[in-house]
Write a protein that binds this DNA or RNA. Sequence first.
DNA 1: CACTTATGGATTGTCGACATTACACAACAG
DNA 2: CTGTTGTGTAATGTCGACAATCCATAAGTG
Lengths: 230, 230
Amino acid sequence: MTTKPMLADPMPPDIAPIENVPLRVQVADRLRSAILSGRLRPGTGLVETALAEQMNVSRAPIREAIQILENDGLVETIAYKGKRVKPLTAREVAETYSLREVFEVMAVRRILENGAPLDLLREHCDAMTAAAEADDFEALVAADEAFHHALIMLADHDLLLASWKNLYLRIHQIMALRNRDEHNLTEVAGNHPPIVQALADGDADRAVKLISDHTRILAAFDPATIAQDL
Amino acid sequence: MTTKPMLADPMPPDIAPIENVPLRVQVADRLRSAILSGRLRPGTGLVETALAEQMNVSRAPIREAIQILENDGLVETIAYKGKRVKPLTAREVAETYSLREVFEVMAVRRILENGAPLDLLREHCDAMTAAAEADDFEALVAADEAFHHALIMLADHDLLLASWKNLYLRIHQIMALRNRDEHNLTEVAGNHPPIVQALADGDADRAVKLISDHTRILAAFDPATIAQDL
DNA sequence: CACTTATGGATTGTCGACATTACACAACAG
DNA sequence: CTGTTGTGTAATGTCGACAATCCATAAGTG
């Protein structure tokens, strides 16, 4: 023991839960949030010294945070030149959605094989229709993601879940970058219940086709508005 | 200009291409190789100071190298406790193979849709039968990987390729850890030509079934010999 | 003896400084 | 004027030292 008394407080009541979150994680979270929200656009250069001064931390956590984002596929390095937010090509957007389709089809298949309960999915369906009626766009998007997230989780496959989450990061970014067309999405809300019904009926072919079409429609939302270069 | 002359040599003829490979990458490569070869078994602790002294570099490159391996899914961190080679559970092995199956099925479908040329696959098939006749186990394994690698590449999908490569890292590790049963593999070599034939015939259902069964057989090779804990 | 409470050692987390590299721009020869 | 050659600057790459944290073990108390 050197500096702090540290006695008492067997459990910090509730407030100030813990700050044991490493700086690099905090920095990574902030940067990721900035990228996913579109505030840091693809192609933007990430200068370590600038970020370090801006956030009042050393360069080491910044470097490690950027590397975390690199692992997420959101940042790319050009050795000795610098790091930048990974440009989003139309091809990459298309690939992201096609891979997502494969993941969700896999999830549907596994759900049918394992006979997972479908209550969660029904709840999210209800939440989505409620949000649609209330004209709450944010809630609608959130409910949609919750539905798909639940779908993947019910597949009971950790690797699939991790891969899907990683992929969905890019989808977040894409959605933030395109100009949202709200009207289309509300009608897509109606796609979910039939999927759940097909699952309940144990109709693999129908369920796969429905989820496949559904994700493909979502992909089609993206006009190739995203044409980043540099 | 400070120390090095650096004139002449508009192009270093061929020898000594460059050593501009960052230390962290060198360290990461060494560690990855050690893990994939089984020399660093799952559960082994990775102590930064020890590795730093052992490799005569500072801790910074070691830390960043370990983080790279973490991104590869080969290492996991327990904050303030240490990093260790990620334990391989039977479940994770199964999940790895099942995800691989989905990837390869996706590749097959895309190859049929795009009408990719199949010459490469045929070459690797020949190499495999040749290796089988020569009783060269190493070459057999290499040819097998080359075949599947080519299959994925022909799908012309960068994200799929990256995901597959990442997944295959774990497969390398798994193969290094299990006691190899050579005899079974030689007979599996025979699975490849029919796959290529089905692709040539444009028979999607048959090709998908064949590649699916094939990868599933490879998975079955693993008795759950791998029971790492800690 | 059981249980709490210090304390020491080992390991990761963070920092600031220095070394190395690449690029851009100016100086200069032809 | 054009091409080349030197420099300077800004960024990343690397290093060693210090701070914070956790774990195990021992000391103390009822």
